[in-house]
Design a binder for these strands. Structure first.
Lengths: 112, 112
DNA sequence: ATCAAATAGTTTATTTTGTAGAGTAAATTG
DNA sequence: CAATTTACTCTACAAAATAAACTATTTGAT
C-alpha cells in the first residue's frame, strides 16, 4: 500500500520553520512575532493556532504547556516542538522545491 | 492602501516552476509529467487545470491554444507562460522561504 | 465514411488549508 | 480586587488543493 506522503502546505512549512528557529522559545506569540520580523507576514492569532493544532494532529509536532512566567503578567505559554516526522516532511518539501528550482532562471528584474 | 502581497501556495509555486522549466513546451500534460519525474508527485488532471486557471486569473501567467500537432492524434494543446508578475511572485516566495531556512538545521536523519 | 485509439483539456464536487476576529483565561501590579 | 498584560481558544468562513468522471479533437485503420 505504501501511501505516498503528502507535502506540507505553504503556511505549515513556515510554522514548522519558525518553531525550529525559535528552538526552546517557540510558542504562539513568539512565532507570530518571528513571522512578522523575518518575512513581514502578519498572521492572525486564529490562523496560527488552528494550523498548529492541525500540524499536531498530523503528528508533525508536539506541544506542552509551560509554567507561568515571572515577566509582567499573563497566561502560561504553550510550547511547540517539531518532531522527527515534521522535520522529515520539511526536508522533503525543501528538496522538492530545490530540485524544481534547478536550472530555472528568473529573467524579470523588479516590479512595482 | 498598498495591500500586502500574498505569497504563492506551494502547489502554485510548483506549477509556475514547471512552466519555466518547460519553456516553450509547457502545457497541461507535459507539466504533469515533469512533476511526476522531478519530484515524484502525481497530480490529477483536474488539480492541474483548476490551479492553472486560478493562476491565470491572478495574472501570474498567460495561456494560448496551440495548433493541432502532427504527432499521433489528439486535441490541441494549451500552452502556458509565466509572466512578469508570476516571476516576481515566485522570486518573493523563494526568498521568504530561504530567509526562514537560514540558520535552521534539521537534525533528524532518516525515517521510515 | 466510420470507428477505435491517442492526446489533451473541461467540469463539478469535495476535502484540506488558510484566515479572521471575537472571546476567554491566567498572572501581575498597584 | 480591578486594571493591565500576556496568551491561548473557539467558531465561522474563504481559498487552495484534489479527485474523478466527462468532453473534445485528431489520426489511422478498416
Amino acid at each position: 500500500m505504501t501511501e505516498k506522503e503528502k507535502f506540507l502546505g505553504e503556511f505549515e512549512q513556515l510554522l514548522l520553520l519558525s518553531i525550529l528557529k525559535l528552538a526552546e522559545n517557540a510558542y504562539g506569540s513568539s512565532i507570530r512575532q518571528l513571522l512578522a520580523d523575518v518575512i513581514d507576514r502578519d498572521v492572525t492569532i486564529g490562523a496560527l493556532y488552528t494550523t498548529l493544532e492541525r500540524l499536531e494532529k498530523k503528528g508533525m509536532l508536539e506541544s506542552k504547556m509551560g509554567e507561568s512566567t515571572r515577566e509582567r503578567g499573563g497566561r502560561a505559554k504553550k510550547y511547540f516542538k517539531v518532531n522527527a516526522k515534521g522535520q522529515h516532511a520539511l526536508k522533503r518539501s525543501k528538496e522538492a522545491l530545490a530540485s524544481m528550482w534547478e536550472n530555472v532562471a528568473i529573467t524579470q528584474m523588479s516590479l512595482p
